[in-house]
Amino acid sequence: MEGVNSEYLILTIVLWFGFYAIVVLSLNIEYGYGGIPNFGRALAVLMGGMAVGGLMNRILISIFKVSGGIIEASGTTKSIVNSIIAENPILGISILLSSLGLAAALGWVSGALFILPSAKLSEDYLAITLLAISEVTYLISYYNVDFIGGYYGVSIPDVLAFIPGTRRILVFTIILLLITFGCYLFVEKLLNSPYGRILKAMRENELVAKAYGKNVMMLRVKTVALGSALASLAGALYSFYSVNVIATSFSRVEWTFYPILMLILGGAGNNAGALLGAFAFVLTKILLITYKFEITSALHLPFQAVWLEYILFGVAMILILFYKPEGLIKEKPIFTKAVKKIVKTKQNQK
């Protein structure tokens, strides 16, 4: 297929892998380890967008004393800030870092609040409530122009304005991959601990966790707060990449359903599986998007390719649930030092 720049294609795949890997890792903490069916993952990603488009933008607008509504003012601020960043990279980097901090904080608080009403209840009530809250917040941020510009969206400064246009995506991708890798190390370290093991115990049997003196409700609140803080980072990074924020980019399909699909495809309950699932999904999706015109014209489809994408990924999910519910990489039993010791002494006795 000619006309597709292969370097651009690879960068796009890596870039989306970076965004989705963070979200899938966050979902793995909650669903893979903790068994909390977070059907409202998109909310945390939207909060990342809000942290940048709503909070950071307002801070910059007040610093540079730009007047007018958030939609117009964000445009003016963007051009002012971009020209400063072009001369002074430190401003760009500090905007990026402080926005990530804001996003994590907003994600943490919103995550804790959003699970609170259903934290005590069974998994079906949990899933319903989380989905409902996420869906309604999405609707409000789309119809209300005061938060992040609603259906008009808001502009975001380019934090890499000091880098020439041709290299911008490459540098952004490298920064993103570093952050993703950092998230992976953090999650891996965090879950290979008593905390990770109590999460798995709670997933398998709530009563066991209770019997060991753990407060299941608090554990759930903490876990979703943590997962949401991580997923928020992805939302913030995505906003900086696209240099604008619009509510429609944070839909349930893109940020709740697809991450669940990636996690189950790769294998819930292990981080390597989460990453593999994200990569396999992104590869398929980007190829599908890149060649959508070829696909629709070759198959003579009388409709847009996005509908085909929904049908394909929906069917893929059901097939995985039927034939490979444990995913590509199966969850391994936990061997702590104490367990290894017992296994060894038993073998020696034989």
Partner: peptide, 10 residues
């Protein structure tokens, strides 16, 4: 539940 979510998307 995930299966019905997938049905919804299909």
């Amino acid at each position: 539940m995930i299966a019905t979510l997938a049905v919804d998307l299909i």
